[in-house]
Amino acid sequence: MNSFIVKGLALAGVLVIGTLVVIKQMHIDLSDPINMITFLGAIAIAALTFGVGAKYMAQMKSDTASGELAEENWDGIGEYKNELPAGWAYSFLGTMIWAVWYFFWGYPLNAYSEIGEYNQEVKNYNKKFEAIHKNASPEVLKEMGESIFLVQCAPCHGETGDGLSGKAQDFSKRFTKEQVLAVIKNGQHKLNFPLGAMPAGMAQGKDAQAVAKYVANGLKGTAPTAWTTCAGCHGTDGKGNGGTAPSLAGYNLPLVKHVLANGKTGIIGHMPAFPGRFTPVQEKALAAYLGTLKQ
């Protein structure tokens, strides 16, 4: 029997310690009150159940049944007129007192609102990370960008940003030749840059081919003559002319911002917009991260 109690409590201990080991491996922060209360709750479940269970097991071994029998008897089953176990009765009372506290003070009936609590949570969050966000170094931005990317963008662009074999933009390459040609041929208007729409037909035939090749190549080598037309808007270096047109050279903040705000439809397909989903720091972080993915 004793071995049974030991086994029971050992199980409770193993369970709690096992949980602790696993969540620590996942870098869970137990100082977060919700995490802490949950963990304490888990300990209470294991300890109380196995502890109290073991107590009654022990009584099976050591105690004997006694008491005054009721006169009734059902199919041979009798019934004692024993008093309530005191521990049970007091605990019952205890939970009722707790209930009153919870209902009127813990989550006060007239004052508590879960949306109010949410607003408070957001406020505390902003306060906590304000400093880090204000002075984020490029390295920090890249790391931030990566974690946002993995949560929000990876399902389409792939965990490495490879675009999942053509299902979305492959970030290791700003453009393929086809993409550039398509824009030259059709123009494009969605991203909402200060310069407005890109008109269709800015270059024709051989010129278009040459420019597309140049742009797809990452603007390396000598620019074809037709590039001057493009440079008028995109800048000679193709970096987007101070944010008035998209950068063709690489991913920078204005481009990422405009894509997030407006979505993008091109020959690969359609990307939904993420309006209001990211803070300015997070947008910066995403741009920084996408910048590192290039080649």
Partner: peptide, 20 residues
Amino acid sequence: GNYRTPDWHANHMWNPKSVV
């Protein structure tokens, strides 16, 4: 509906592993 597209769903419902 805010952050996925019909073609993404088409790929995903046909074979979820192709995108995730």
